[in-house]
């Protein structure tokens, strides 16, 4: 980042990528391809309206209501659409349920496909080469680095997202939280648990 504002009379000079993005935006706006106001709206949506709380709302409801859960698992897209959580890029979302037998973890080895409507923008580690290249090869090792240790007889299943299909993990709810109400449950559900990189109640 540039610095030393006081020494120069001019405005803080942005970094090259910042200037490049401005140049791209100017060119696209002059060519009539984008509306700068729409960009602000998209950023506001992803900063303030979409985020892991959307996913947590769905998960908490699924834990509390078996019928809702059944519908969610079998009829995912129409259910999510009712909540307004649908993919702006037209992708499908599949819910994968953790059980004592199988633990699910999600990656996008190709790039960084992610269930945006439910979790917002992915964290840095999800986009990193290290995670994308390693989790398929050595999922248990990656999980242990996230602080997740599974029983030996729990299998790990890795789901590789694509532009068309994104996954959301339905974590297991530990018995000690059985009496929690919806709001309390939502607080328990971390973003990482919905990617499969954490367990519920597993503070990292």
């Amino acid at each position: 980042m540039p610095h030393d504002i006081e020494k120069h009379g001019h405005s803080l000079l942005p970094s090259d990528p910042e200037l490049k993005v401005k140049a791209l935006e100017t060119a696209l706006a002059k060519n009539g391809l984008i509306d700068p106001a729409a960009l602000d709206e998209i950023i506001d949506t992803y900063q303030n309206k979409i985020g892991p709380k959307n996913g947590a709302t769905i998960i908490a409801k699924a834990w509390l209501d078996q019928n809702f859960k059944n519908d969610l698992m079998t009829n995912t897209m129409p259910i999510l659409e009712k909540f307004g959580f649908f993919g702006r890029q037209g992708e499908h979302i599949q819910i994968v349920e953790n059980t004592p037998e199988v633990h699910n973890i999600v990656v996008c080895t190709l790039c960084s496909c992610y269930p945006w409507p439910l979790l917002g923008i992915p964290p840095t580690w999800y986009k990193s080469d290290a995670y994308r290249s390693r989790v398929v090869r050595e999922p248990r090792k990656c999980l242990s680095e996230f602080g997740v240790t599974l029983p030996n007889n729990t299998k790990v299943r890795v789901w590789d997202s694509t532009a068309e299909i994104r996954y959301l993990v339905l974590p297991m709810l530990p018995k000690k939280y059985k009496d929690f109400d919806k709001e309390q449950l939502i607080e328990l559900i971390s973003r990482d648990a919905m990617i499969g990189a954490a367990l519920i109640g597993n503070v990292t």
């Binding site: 791209l24 950023i43 607080e187």
Partner: peptide
């Protein structure tokens, strides 16, 4: 557990390029 701050973008230009693309 869920209090970790959700920071979708670390820099304004990241948000801007994302929004342009979407």
């Amino acid at each position: 557990i869920n209090k970790a701050e959700y920071r979708p973008f670390n820099e304004p230009w990241h948000a801007q390029i994302f929004a342009i693309t979407v």
